[in-house]
Amino acid sequence: MKTKLRLWLIMAFVVGATGTIVLYNIHRPRLLIIHSSASENAQMRPINRGLRDVLRDKTQFSIRWYYTGLNSIGSKHLAELESVRVRSLISAMQPDVILAVGDEVQEYVARHYANDPRIKIVYCAVHEDVAPYGLDHATNATGSLMTPPIEALTEMLQLMGQQLALTKPIRVLHIGDKTDDVKDDGNYMARQKWAKLRFIGNEYVGNFEEWKLVLGRVEKHADFIVTSEYRTLARSSSDPALVPAQEVVDWTVSHTPVPVVGTRSQYVMDGGMLAVGASLYEQGKEGGNIAIRLLEQHTSPREIPASTSKEFVIAANESRLKEKNLYLPDIYRALARASNNYFQ
């Protein structure tokens, strides 16, 4: 009798514990974080750091991370296949919120869930605008947009202009490849006020030969070049092979007579002189915070307006700066060092 009672009690405990765990997990808010990159690479690390900082103590959420690699898949067909895989995962997991990081995830995944009442979408690290993905008017989407920090960039270029003793209004040209991201950035820059500087326009090039040609004759038109993205440059009009980013930057730095400044910190990691870009850490943190609000407060995405980047990061290479007779004031140097973006 006692043995049976004991067995029943143990069974009740095991069943009770298992049941509690299962019930809790079933009702746990689910968050799926989908990245455009294939893994946590140098570019994604600041975003993930921001995400982890805000999600660290949110153990009540069931959080899953998924790296799609969509930003490096060359073919549209493969990207579509990956899109199907991710959507199949979403269908199985049924997340309450999808946190889509990067433009490609919006293009291939998030847009399929626009206005879906079962899923809320948070986008982050998206360049300029989500209208191309149909998320601008979606009732279930909100997030954080990443724009070039024009004010900070203006200040920096003015400072550099003083160091180079430029007297006339500083002329700035934007150059980049022909991707949508670059065009978004270009359009955004064209709409901004550049204070005492003069933004003279955008140059979108398809291959490395064109890139060299544009930069070769740039001295006559511009005092500074601003570049955003150059990873999809083909070798030439006849050779579609992509040119490695480091090769593009190396050539640019050594052959361009005017200083070239990036709008993403990756430019300095590729060998560039200086970059003033939107803070990816802020993007991750902001995206994470919006997701938490949606999950915890059951708020509608419509009630949370999309935000744009406010913080910026500086990345610098001291030896490259010296080559152009430029230097970075201590305060900027400290800022670059604080985000591990200062190279000697």
Binding site: K2, R6, L9, I10, A12, F13, G16, A17, T20
Partner: peptide, 20 residues
């Protein structure tokens, strides 16, 4: 010890439920 064990299992079953 049998009764102690039964009591122990009963408490192990009930105590977490009461806490929750």
């Amino acid at each position: 010890s049998d009764w102690m064990e039964l009591g122990g299992w009963l408490l192990t079953l009930l105590c977490p439920a009461v806490i929750l």
